[in-house]
């Protein structure tokens, strides 16, 4: 579904991704781990098409389509969803109204008519239940005054509403209490299907106990330096990143 080849990307002329390659097939969950500043969020932003991030080399294909050709809104309409590490507040814009606009824009792109009011509300109710998202929050202004955990949960609520092809979760687990973590994970698991895929960025093995990944990758200095199955996450939890850093830096030095 997603094919990233030799991706180089920079911000302010500083190269952050330095030849990253990744293949994600439909139905899979890939976890991305790695030390702070290694480029995990950068990858999410590049996939979503954020302007400040300049791709200098490489390609990204989503079901054969060149993502780099598309604007951020068209990538979203093609099914790329980024659950932000730091969701922003937008005062005065109602959460529901925002979602309705988003959903209908995506539908229009696919040549579908806007969702009828009743259908839309049913969907809201269903998804609210799925991620146990408080109806009161859904009706408030977008993230305005939300707690850190509420913001994260709102990201997953939006993901559930928009049903993207590719969901990128950037540290959705940070800031969630234990119960919320379980609820969010359960929500994501129920959304998993043979038609979609997830990239889960996290620092903690705990999340991966709930959302079990097919593959785990370690991102370091802008490249994927180790890939494995869920056992790799356990190993990292135990040993930290030093052993990887050492071997990688040693390889480089050669």
């Amino acid at each position: 579904m997603l094919s990233i080849k030799n991706l180089h990307a920079s911000v302010d002329d500083k190269e952050i991704l330095k030849g990253l390659s990744l293949e994600v097939k439909a139905g899979e969950v890939h976890a991305i781990m790695g030390p702070n500043g290694s480029g995990k969020s950068t990858l999410g932003n590049v996939l979503a098409g954020r302007e400040a991030y300049e791709v200098t080399e490489g390609e990204i294909l989503l079901d054969g389509k060149d993502l780099l050709e598309l604007s951020p809104e068209n990538r979203a309409r093609e099914g790329v969803f980024l659950a932000f590490q730091y969701p922003v507040e937008i005062p005065g814009v109602s959460n529901i109204n925002f979602l309705k606009t988003a959903l209908n824009e995506i539908r229009a792109y696919k040549g579908l008519p806007p969702l009828e009011a009743r259908e839309f509300l049913n969907r809201v109710k269903e998804k609210q239940k799925l991620v146990e998202f408080d109806a009161k929050l859904a009706n408030r202004s977008l993230n305005e005054g939300f707690s850190g955990g509420e913001k994260k949960r709102n990201e997953i609520f939006q993901l559930a509403m928009l049903e993207p092809k590719l969901g990128i979760l950037d540290e959705t687990d940070s800031g969630l209490d234990i119960d919320a973590l379980r609820i969010v994970a359960r929500g994501v698991n129920q959304l998993r299907s043979q038609e979609n895929a997830f990239i889960v960025i996290t620092h903690y093995q705990r999340l991966l106990e709930y959302i079990v990944p097919d593959f785990v990758h370690v991102l370091y200095k802008g490249r994927i330096v180790r890939s494995g199955t869920k056992e790799l996450a356990l190993e990292l939890e135990e040993k930290g990143y030093d052993w990887i850093k050492e071997t990688v830096d040693a390889e480089k030095a050669v």
């Binding site: 979503a48 951020p72 809104e73 937008i90 814009v93 925002f98 606009t101 824009e105 977008l142």
Partner: peptide
């Protein structure tokens, strides 16, 4: 970016933000 990442056209996004503000 938050709004366009959800599939909303940039001009519509500005409209939403401005209307929220007002």
């Amino acid at each position: 970016f938050y709004l366009t990442q959800r599939g909303i056209d940039p001009e519509k996004a500005v409209g939403l933000i401005v209307n929220g503000y007002a």
